[in-house]
Write a protein that binds this DNA or RNA. Structure first.
Lengths: 160, 160
DNA sequence: TTAATAAAAGATAATTTTGTCCTTTAATAA
DNA sequence: TTATTAAAGGACAAAATTATCTTTTATTAA
């Protein structure tokens, strides 16, 4: 019996929930215009994410008015044009909150320009750049890469 | 009985373990030169982190040759000059691994310049800036802020 | 040599995040 | 109206992360 703990497996910028959310939004935004509603199954396959868990994430997005869902036959999810034009940051915001944009990188609760942690002025420009890109880049912007076949979302090249 | 899950409480750039590690390293690096060894208790108080957990994190740092520890009376931890001059990234590396520097922001396993995820070229500059700052900024650099009383680590102004 | 001190190591617990399964609700079409 | 479809919601379960407690080991000083 050993209970070794080495290092944190893999800690990216966003939570997995958030990654699934972003992927799903881009996937939907990249769908051809005539493809009105996309079912959960197709979404989960398209971004290869766990189906049931993805359902939970999508529920949050629906409540946040970032997605529309329709029940019943031929139901599914769809993204409105209004939302396609929204900055990516709003998706992150809806799932992870704004910690990644605002909170202190070193975890200090009180950390500001006037009362900074030792890393404050080092991390500030990074956070600023992140915030900037996340407010200027729209969901649609990222969907284009998929559409023109220059970006992938599930290991396969898309075939629309 | 309700099992509501809203959003991920607070997801910053680094894990808590990693934040404690960075804080501890800076705290030690900011210690006056004559203060040879610093005990666990003093460290945990200095960076207000949970003592027992911090001990575990420090153990990893010792194994990674980023700290020296001495047992017994007047024992404690100390940081070598060699290590003070190391880039902050090495501390992150030791605890969180290099996921934050290298892994795909959208969680795609295959993501590279030649086979990019939709967000690849948006997040690349951010990762690059992060990597850059984390390789050019040393532990010592951040300790200076504490020394000159311009940065804080525990809500209190230091009084060395 | 022994007692005291402090970190290392081992074991476990609590919390958060991620993941699944089953039932309910809403919508559609026969 | 009824059967079918698909999302919503509720209840758990598993895994990862964070946290604590106890025992062991190494060091120092009396």
């Amino acid at each position: 019996m050993f209970y070794i703990w080495l290092i944190n497996s893999e800690k990216g910028m966003f939570s997995k929930s958030c990654q699934y959310a972003i992927n799903a939004m881009i996937f939907l935004a990249a769908m051809p215009a005539d493809q009105e509603r996309v079912g959960l199954k197709e979404i989960a396959q398209g971004i290869d994410s766990p189906l049931a868990f993805t359902a939970k994430v999508l529920q949050i997005l629906v409540k946040a008015n970032l997605l529309v869902s329709i029940k019943g036959p031929h139901g599914g999810f769809q993204i409105e044009d209004r939302v396609r034009k929204l900055p990516l940051g709003q998706v992150v915001q809806a799932i992870d909150g704004d910690a990644v944009f605002t909170s202190c990188a070193l975890g200090r609760h009180e950390c500001s320009d006037s009362f900074p942690c030792p890393g404050h002025y080092v991390f500030k420009p990074i956070r600023d750049q992140l915030t900037g890109l996340m407010t200027t880049t729209t969901i649609e912007d990222l969907a284009i890469g998929i559409r023109i076949g220059m970006a992938h979302l599930n290991g396969e090249v898309n075939t629309y």
